[in-house]
């Protein structure tokens, strides 16, 4: 059954080889005359100020956390949807209970304004 993954494996090998080839070939063929302006991360546009590793607002974390929670909730629905035909009404009630508990959390997040991007 692993043999069915051979096309994917070939695809990965070709993709990696193409990326490596592009980098190596460009390095071999191109003329390199670097100067200070060329070596900047952005050659045009606003000059970079400060360090990229700055502290972020906690709001990003909150959004990411809510995203992961609803992501996991969706993950549970995939096997449920596939086997709902056999589970019938029992499965439907189970999932409704599961969703009800999470909807409580959703309304909590909504009421507390966790979904809004207030400044």
């Amino acid at each position: 059954m692993l043999t069915s993954y051979v096309p994917i494996f070939i695809f990965i090998v070709i993709a990696a080889a193409f990326a490596a080839f592009t980098i190596v070939f460009a390095r071999l063929v191109s003329a390199q005359k670097p100067n200070a302006i060329k070596l900047e991360p952005y050659e045009c546009g606003i000059e970079a100020a400060g360090d990229a590793r700055d502290r972020y607002s906690i709001r990003y974390y909150l959004i990411a956390m809510l995203f992961v929670i609803f992501d996991v909730e969706t993950v549970f629905m995939f096997p449920w949807a596939v086997s709902l035909g056999k589970l019938a009404v029992f499965g439907l009630i189970e999932m409704l209970l599961f969703l009800f508990i999470l909807v409580v959390g959703y309304f909590y997040a909504w009421r507390k304004g966790a979904l809004e991007w207030q400044l």
Binding site: L66, F76, I101, L102, V104, G105, A109, A114
Partner: peptide, 18 residues
């Protein structure tokens, strides 16, 4: 079903903290 409670606790905890 317990997993849903766990997710709920995680959600409320994250909101309370952040």
């Amino acid at each position: 079903e317990v997993a849903s409670m766990l997710l709920l606790v995680a959600m409320i905890g994250a909101i309370l903290l952040a």
